[in-house]
Amino acid sequence: MQLQIQAHSIITPTSVQANGEFVLNNEEKHPFNLFGKELYRHLSIQYPKFFKMDELSQLAFLGTHLLTMHIENWDGDKVAIVLGNKSSSLSSDKRHYQSIADRSNYFPSPAVFVYTLPNIMLGEMCIRYKVTGENTCFIMEQLDVDFLHTYVQHLFEAEHYHYCITGFVDYSDSSYIAELYLVSSQKDTGAPLALDFDKNFNQIIF
């Protein structure tokens, strides 16, 4: 089955791009808690739950928004999400530990604890975009294109999906990235890109 990459987005500490086009620069070198909000407002998103998410989920959420702007609606059960991640939910994990470090001030926070799993970001994407297909979070050092290509290609062939969001989303104290690809088995969808999905799928040259 020949699959296509039909959209791409990337968020890094310096800039944001969608389908090879510039979206926003982090000129002031703001930390993510500011830059993420700036991007949210820049994209005129209305989704108050965004502010309750941890950084990892916010990254995945913003990246998915950029990736799916051309899609008006889709059959959620024909959409899968398969992501790579390295640092798990480290940022929320540390926050949870801080809340229980002092026995005389022992107040673990439910709103923090529920984000202490890396697959929660996939859950947030599923809720926002009504995705009810498979969602799997693999832990890997970096974007493992070979593995993700094999897995996603097989997923389409075995379970007849129309779309799969794949890529790598990671947040740690030192850096962050959301690099996402919309892979599709559907043709003529009015998508911004139509590139072959192969073992070098991350080597897009615009």
Partner: peptide, 11 residues
């Protein structure tokens, strides 16, 4: 084997 999501609530 198969997997899915509720797309309803994270917890």
């Amino acid at each position: 084997g198969s997997q899915s999501n509720d797309a309803n609530h994270i917890s």
